[in-house]
Amino acid sequence: MITRRYLVVRTTYAIVTAFIAITINFLLPRLIPGNPADVILFANYHYIPPGKAKLLEAQFGLTTNNLGIEFYDYLKQLFLHFNLGLSFSYYPATVAQLIESHLPWTLYLLGVSILLSSVLGVIVGRWIGWRAGSRSESVTSSIFIGLTSLPYFWLAIIFILLFAFMIPIFPLAGSFAITVTPGLTISFISSVITHSLLPIITLVITTFPAFALTMRNTMVNQNKEDYLMMARARGLPRHVIEKKYAARNAILPVTTHIVLAFGYIVAGAFFVEVVFSYQGIGYLLYKAVTSYDYPLVDGIFLMITITVIIANFLADMLYAILDPRVELR
């Protein structure tokens, strides 16, 4: 049950976490050695003209050498103007523009993958958990244990090799074919779907087995619960016991597992984007980090953080709906 108090406290937690994350996100890239102005100039002139370096640094706001003032400016721009600054490497594009054009791709990839792997994990886990001890169950469980140990990027490379290169049924890279124009047309949408299939399959295959195994184990443990014996003593049909008693209770720890795995899946999605040259946030982040693009790195980290915080907040709400015992302690 979501009580008013629960909502208020959870929201406060989310806001405080977001602020701490913003602070850390501001600090981290500034601790990386190197100077973005030098990088840009070196890339263009193959040496660093001193006057030009000063000019660029001034434009990027890197003159004060005072983190406090930079942080204050950063917060002011962020909260008053939603201004995340200019990208160093995609100059003169703004960070906000870059995120805006890349974020939907990542949200699509992540959203579909998380949804699919959670649903699949719960359904398959419930099925094997209720049949624990049978031959089909032990075979499935062993395969799943193997699948959980596959790294995302490795599987992604193997998939590209197999299904895009050796047997070219899927496109090699990108998020849609260069021959189609973006828009709400059938050719564009189908191109987007075919380009996203391999990345999504990679993510789902590497994440859902862990959920399924958790679900399996909690289903097995349900058999030891008094309420399950009581349900059998009450003469309830087997399918009712499985659904309303075993699975309904087993889903609670699985929800926690999925929420905890959230950050891991986000990281996985980024790797997968890089391998598939999929134009999402992960790919953008990779570019930004390799070119000392402080504002872009900052903006992306902020984006990721906010997304994960929002997702956690929603998960808290979901948990309160699923488990009536969830209250504030």
């Binding site: 008094d226 309420y227 009581m230 349900a231 309303k244 209770n249 488990d323 009536p324 015992r325």
Partner: peptide, 8 residues
């Protein structure tokens, strides 16, 4: 103590 389904 634990005989009733906690989520129903």
């Amino acid at each position: 103590m634990n005989i009733l389904n906690p989520v129903m």
